[in-house]
Write a protein that binds this DNA or RNA. Structure first.
Length: 487
RNA sequence: GGCCCUAUAGUAUAACGGUUAGUACGCCAGGUUUUCAUCCUGGUAAUCCGAGUUCGAUUCUCGGUAGGGUCACCA
């Protein structure tokens, strides 16, 4: 039997980075086994539906470089891949459950249920469905339904039964049906709830393995029961731990910085770094480790797919560590082939920054060579390139790095200018030796350290007390521009 | 509160029941470097608590404690 996994998001807004983890695990399991990875749109809640956000899901996959085998856009033999297009299917199967007496029609209104819960809580009990229509006459119920009365369909959960769920990640979990309510399967608006739709869809789409968040654990016995009632084999299921806020308080949320994938892209993170970071938050590959030696932690998505095993997934909830993500990003930027990095930067620039200088720069690679080791994100990369294109507009000279040469500032600048004027017009012919010699001489003349002389030059050129290697930067800028900035 | 899950440095994690409890991020210090960064070296810091099983427990069992999840006509 072939491995088929799926990601089943609701189009309710942005793409949460925690969702990416499920995508990656699902994708890896399928691809490792030459199976299919499917995306199904779960839009049965019309209240939460947000127009246009289906696109976000596919856009995110594209930006992450993850190919989808079957979906509303990619075709496939088991469609439709959007739940709102499958309503008649759910209706048919819901009826089947009612006829087999595994489910029943119920007619209480939301208000009545609220009232019931309230009085139960007032008496100190846990709110629970009272089973009012559980044993209601079937023919009578049918009549009311046919008469057009509003109804819901509820699952008839058997009493006193132990339900055992075998979880790929959590292992064996046991539940009692006595802790379960008669869950609603079909809402009064005719739409199925998640509990009905997932089971039908996963079965019909021949899904073999499911990854979903741990928040679903409590309802996993409902899923098990529903499969049993239909007489279908339940797919393997794995509940993946929630990524928590850095302080460990609750699920990763907006209040603690970016969570939307789009924000990470905008901030200049590379897809490789994001993937690498996310997969390691809860997964640790079975690879050979030598005591005391560095362990491998840089993995491409291909290597991840190759190494992925569900047994290596962790059970506890990790906290989101932004410093480590940043470190991964820095590593990738530093080690990227300069040509590829140039492509990435230009792509990013055209998407977010829209800086015309970067856009039109045909010799950006030489510059990147100088700055790529000192940037953590594409955004920083772009910023550190800025001085190549534009002279600093306002320079702060009164800084601690220049405190030893404050009184001679103007004279030193004039001397440096003279030195450069003596150089070849073509900056390609400038040499380190000439620079060293000339700058040292100036330092001696003013009884300053030659490092201070360089600092004067650096600040004049870049406006900052730090910069990429100076000689190379000056060569790129050219004689004319350098002299201009010293004036 | 009921039910379910989890528990190794600040964080992410490694460790056939036997290791000086490893690695990375972070942090600190030193070295290289004209600056910043890179790079190199060193340091800091952990088995939640209590019983039990065992010659021996981070590892197995039980009980606490703490954290997470869930108790909707939301997914």
């Amino acid at each position: 039997m072939s491995i088929r996994t799926r990601f089943a998001p609701s189009p309710t807004g942005y793409f949460h980075i925690a969702g990416l983890q499920k995508v990656l695990y699902s994708y890896a399991l399928a691809k490792k086994n030459n199976g299919q990875y499917i995306v199904r749109i779960e839009d049965t809640d019309r209240n939460r539906y947000v127009e246009g956000t289906e696109d976000v899901i596919f856009e995110s996959h594209k930006l992450m470089g993850i190919d989808i085998d079957e979906s509303i856009h990619d075709g496939g033999d088991y469609g439709p891949y959007r739940q709102s297009d499958r309503l008649d299917i759910y209706k048919k199967y819901a009826q089947e459950l009612v006829e087999k007496d595994f489910a029943y029609y119920a007619f209480e209104t939301k208000e009545e249920l609220d009232e019931m819960r309230k009085s139960q809580m007032d008496e100190g009990h846990r709110p629970r469905y009272n089973g009012l229509y559980r044993e209601y006459d079937k023919e009578e119920a049918k009549k009311r339904v046919e008469a057009g009365e509003e109804y819901v369909v509820r699952l008839k959960v058997p009493a006193h039964r132990e339900i055992v769920v075998e979880d790929m990640i959590m292992g064996q979990m046991k539940f009692s049906t006595d802790d379960l309510d008669d869950y609603i399967l079909v809402k009064s608006d005719g739409y199925p709830t998640y509990h009905l739709a997932v089971v039908i869809d996963d079965h019909l789409m021949k899904i073999s393995h499911i990854f979903r968040g741990v928040e679903w654990i409590a309802t996993s016995p409902i899923m098990k029961l529903t499969y049993e009632f239909f007489g279908w084999e339940m797919p393997q299921i794995g509940h993946v731990p929630n990524i928590l806020n850095p302080n460990g308080q609750g699920k990763l949320s907006k209040r603690n910085g970016s969570v939307a994938l789009s924000e990470f892209f905008e901030e200049g993170y590379l897809k490789e770094a994001i993937i690498n970071f996310i997969i390691l938050l809860g997964w640790s590959p079975s690879i050979e480790r030598v005591h005391g030696e560095k362990e491998r932690e840089i993995f491409s998505i291909e290597e991840f797919v190759d190494l992925f095993e569900t047994k290596d997934l962790n059970k506890s909830n990790p906290k989101f560590n932004r410093e480590k993500l940043l470190w991964f990003n820095k590593e990738y930027i530093k080690n990227f082939d300069t040509k590829d990095l140039a492509d990435r930067l230009k792509e990013w620039n055209s998407r977010y920054l829209k800086n015309a200088d970067i856009e039109s720069d045909d010799s950006i690679e030489v510059k990147l060579e100088l700055v790529k080791e000192r940037s953590q994100t594409l955004k920083e990369l772009a910023e550190s390139l800025e001085f190549f294109y534009n002279a600093p507009n306002k320079i702060e000279w009164n800084i601690k790095q220049l405190k030893n040469v404050q009184k001679n500032l103007e004279d030193m600048k004039a001397e440096i200018k003279k030195l450069i004027e003596s150089f070849d017009d073509d900056s390609k012919d400038w040499t380190h030796e000439k620079w060293e010699e000339g700058m040292r001489a100036i330092g001696d003349r003013f009884e300053a350290k030659h490092g201070d002389v360089f600092m004067v030059l650096r600040v004049a050129i870049t406006g900052e007390p730090f910069s990429p290697p100076l000689f190379e930067s000056l060569q790129i800028l050219g004689k004319e521009e350098v002299l201009k900035r010293l004036s």
